[in-house]
Structures are given as C-alpha cells and as structure tokens.
C-alpha cells in the first residue's frame, strides 16, 4: 500500500494535546476536511489552531464569528456604496469592479500562495444558517465572485479548524463533511501537565494542592458555572503572587472569587463549604 506523505501534527511545546486529539487533527489534515472542535469553555479549543500553526510552521488566519456575521463576509465584501459614490463624483474608474471587492478571511485563506491554518472561531455564535452557507465553499475550497466573474480557488487546501460551544446548532449536512473532536475536560494528571506548561517552575506541593482543591470545587454539582482551565491558571498566578503557603490552599481557598465568578456561586460556596469548621472541602 502506498502512503502519501503528509505533515504530521505532534502537538507543540506550549500545548498539551491528547492522543485522540492529535489523531483527529492528522485525519483532518490528511483528508483535507475541516476539523470541528467542541468542548467546555476553557479546554483550549481556540489555542489548538495556534498550536497547529506553530507546530507546522504555517500562517494562521483567524476568523472570529459574531452574532451578526454573515457567510458572505467570510468570502468577500463588495463595497457598493463606495462604488456608487465614486461613480457619482467621478473620482475613479468605476468599471473596474475588482477594486471594490475585498476578500474576507476565508477568501484570504484560499488566495494565500502557501498553505495556511484557518481558524473559524465560535461558529455557533452566528446565525444557524451560517455554516450551511459556507458548506460548498469549504467543500470545494473555492468560490465564485459574480461581480467580477472571478473564481477564487485555494492553491493549497487550508487546514480548517472550527470551534463551537454549541450542541444542536450545526446542520447535519455541515457535520457530515467535518472531522469532529470533543475535547474532554482534562483529568488531574493532564491538568498538571497543562499547568506546568504555563508555570514551569511551580512548586510541586502548591501544584498538587491547587489542583486537588480545583477539582473538588468542580465536583460541586450546584454551581452555575464551574471553573475552567483558564480560571485555574489565573488562580495559580494569584496564589503565586500572594505567596500563599500550600497548606492553606485547600483549607481556606484564598482568592476563591478568581475561580467562582458568578455571585450566586460565590455565595453558595462560601455559605456551604467555607467557615464550617476546619474540614471544609475535606468532607
């Protein structure tokens, strides 16, 4: 069996990728399909694209999706008003429509002379029809501009990473064309690795205590918003700056407001878990 040679993503020094994630990334690269990544907030969905770009030495193009984003904007924008204006005042030769066409992020990725990594961030934020509108373009990796009669075709299929928080929003036809990966919340061992990437010189006892306490707080079911990785990292930063001794961490949970950002969660935790003698999280 002949095997074509593809670039293989093995993770990068600043990003801890699980086997299954690397597997999915490589499948997406080899098959030339978009990779859809889903997972709880703070599990590193967006950072994955950065890591891939860095590991493979490619340029990263970020397309941040907002609630008002239209699929068309991803491809190109035709500045009609400006052209009308120019026509009216005769500033420029308006017969050249090309100068009024501005490529969007997707168009930019296709037009790029070398292969790029394209991150479509938080695709679920946009209108539910948004992914469907880009279906064909992502499939064919080309699109047609009727105004100029031009077709923008990708010279190299970009590596497309799509992140989403949502569950149901994405249409089936779209999903069928994607490779999918769900990033699980890291287990304590993986979390240790992640923390070490950010704080290489962290004291072992502080790390252990902080992670233990963090997972205990996460195990409280009644919290409205459970703290995520980024909050843990912030918290450790604060603990370091304040020079908190490790044995205090699980007993007093200093700076708990860094972990619990919702007021109700904060009060719930303080009332039910703190100040009930010394045992607090030990129970």
């Amino acid at each position: 069996m002949s095997r074509e040679v593809f670039e293989v993503y093995k993770g990068s020094s600043d990003y801890v990728a699980s086997e299954s994630l690397k597997n999915a990334v490589n499948a997406a690269i080899t098959l030339g399909r978009p990779l859809l990544v889903r997972g709880e907030p703070g599990t590193g969905k967006t950072l994955l694209a950065h890591s891939i770009a860095r590991a493979l030495g490619k340029r990263l193009i970020v397309f941040n999706v907002k609630s008002t984003t239209k699929a068309q904007e991803a491809l190109y924008v035709y500045d009609t008003v400006r052209r009308l204006n120019d026509a009216r005042f005769g500033d420029r030769d308006v017969s050249d429509i090309k100068q009024y066409i501005k490529l969007g992020k997707l168009g930019e990725a296709f037009a790029s002379p070398e292969q790029v990594v394209l991150l479509i961030d938080e695709i679920d934020k946009a209108d539910p029809e948004f992914p469907n509108d880009l279906l064909n373009e992502l499939d064919e990796m080309s699109f047609y501009i009727p105004e100029t009669g031009e077709t923008i075709r990708a010279k190299h299929r970009p590596i497309v990473i799509i992140t989403s928080n949502a569950e149901k929003e994405l249409p089936d036809a779209f999903l069928r064309r994607c490779i999918f990966h769900y990033i699980e919340f890291p287990d304590p061992e993986t979390m240790e690795k992640i923390v070490k990437v950010h704080y290489p010189n962290l004291r072992e006892d502080l790390l252990k205590e902080a992670i233990k306490t963090f997972y205990k707080i996460r195990s409280i079911d009644d919290l409205k918003k459970k703290p995520s990785t980024s909050e843990l990292l912030d918290w450790i930063y604060v603990l370091l700056r304040a020079d908190v001794s490790p044995d205090k961490i699980s007993k007093e949970v200093p700076f708990i407001n860094v972990l619990l950002k919702k007021e109700t969660d904060f009060h719930y935790f303080v009332n039910n878990y703190l100040g009930k003698g010394s045992g607090l999280l030990r129970r």
Partner: peptide, 11 residues
C-alpha cells in the same frame, strides 16, 4: 479514535 472523529459528530 479515527472512526470516532469521522463518523460521530456529537459528544
């Protein structure tokens, strides 16, 4: 993992 990434589109 490969089959899951390709065939399954929801956790």
């Amino acid at each position: 993992y490969l089959a899951r990434a390709i065939l399954v589109k929801s956790e």
